[in-house]
């Protein structure tokens, strides 16, 4: 995932709190008119595809098949029918409403479970000294790069039969255990990165706070609840948003670990792409429904999110 580098200590020296005035003048020469025009072009280029999807999703099947979406601005031909259609399972091959619910049911625990466990571990790595701490921490850091493909099959078997190297050790999940295996898979795969990011932040909290708490008689439990948890909220929030986007947008884990009635919306979209290349109008409506929630989360919490990231980045 991409958050690692934002919170990476390496970016720290490059982020001074304020920029000197004189620099602006130097920069003025750099950002010439051509640069501004180029930037504008890139920004438009980056926005057009999404706009195309949005417009297409409101167009009639005939219009979609015969003319480009940009003609809708002059010719009209817009309809809400596509959105009605995608929520009607007899008209599309998938049940988008169900997919949205499944996505939510997968994503919210998928974002919160790893955070809770990672907070505990990150606290231990940051504030409880023990031998080999650095090495174990680096090991966990390295684990985040392990491709999902590398653990997929044994993980499936662990969940379904509790088997490790052919021996049944853990109690298996039942045949009808709902979302359990997807939650667990998301939790396990998110842990290394989440621990790493939270550790960076928690370790940067001022030592004085901890000393004072200890003098007041607080144990690790109290320090964790009363000091670390509230102070780490910006980091927790930004990582939660990242994890939310990550889980919501995931395809592979859902394909492998969910059963057919638990398909999140990404899987349903892939199914629609697979079967109805011709039904572009329905596909774009469904795709727009699927991106609107993460987009809103992202837009609504963007400022908070960036602040959390920079706060994490300025301390290592």
């Amino acid at each position: 995932m991409t958050a690692s580098t934002v919170l990476d200590p390496n970016t720290r020296p490059n982020l001074p709190p304020e920029k000197p005035r004189t620099l602006d003048r130097v920069r003025e020469k750099l950002s010439s008119k051509t640069a501004t025009i180029a930037a504008l072009l890139i920004a438009i280029l980056w926005t057009l595809p999404t706009l195309g999807l949005l417009v297409s999703s409101f167009r009639t099947p005939d219009a979609v098949a015969t003319s480009g979406w940009w003609t809708a601005f002059t010719d009209g031909g817009l309809t809400l029918d596509n959105y009605e259609a995608i929520f009607d399972p007899t008209r599309v091959y998938v049940n988008i409403g169900e997919g949205l619910l499944n996505s939510l049911a997968i994503t919210i625990p998928g974002a919160i479970l790893p955070l809770g466990l990672a907070l505990l571990a990150a606290y231990a790595f940051a504030w409880i000294p023990f031998r080999g701490r650095n090495w174990i921490f680096i090991g966990i850091f390295a684990l985040q790069i392990v491709p999902i493909q590398m653990v997929m099959v044994p993980l499936l078997r662990l969940f379904s039969s509790g088997e490790i190297f052919g021996t049944v050790v853990v109690r298996p999940l039942g045949g009808d255990s709902g979302f359990a295996s997807i939650w667990l898979a998301h939790t396990i795969l998110a842990l290394p990165l989440t621990i790493f990011l939270l550790h960076n932040f928690i370790a940067s909290l001022p030592n004085d706070l901890f000393e004072a708490a200890r003098i007041d008689g607080a144990g690790h439990g109290q320090i964790f609840l009363r000091i670390v948890l509230p102070l780490a909220m910006p980091a927790i929030a930004s990582i939660a948003i990242f994890q939310f986007l990550w889980v919501w947008n995931d395809l592979l884990i859902a394909l492998v670990f969910s059963s057919s009635d638990q398909n999140p919306i990404t899987v349903m979209l892939t199914n629609m792409v697979g079967t109805q290349g011709q039904n572009t109008f329905l596909l774009s409506a469904a795709a727009f429904i699927s991106i609107i929630i993460p987009l809103l989360v992202f837009l609504g919490l963007q400022r908070y999110f960036v602040r959390g990231l920079l706060a994490g980045a300025t301390k290592g």
């Binding site: 379904s160 298996p172 045949g175 295996s181 057919s260």
Partner: peptide
């Protein structure tokens, strides 16, 4: 495509 993983997942 899914049925193979569902068989392995006992789902």
């Amino acid at each position: 495509q899914r049925i193979q993983s569902q068989v392995q997942a006992n789902k």
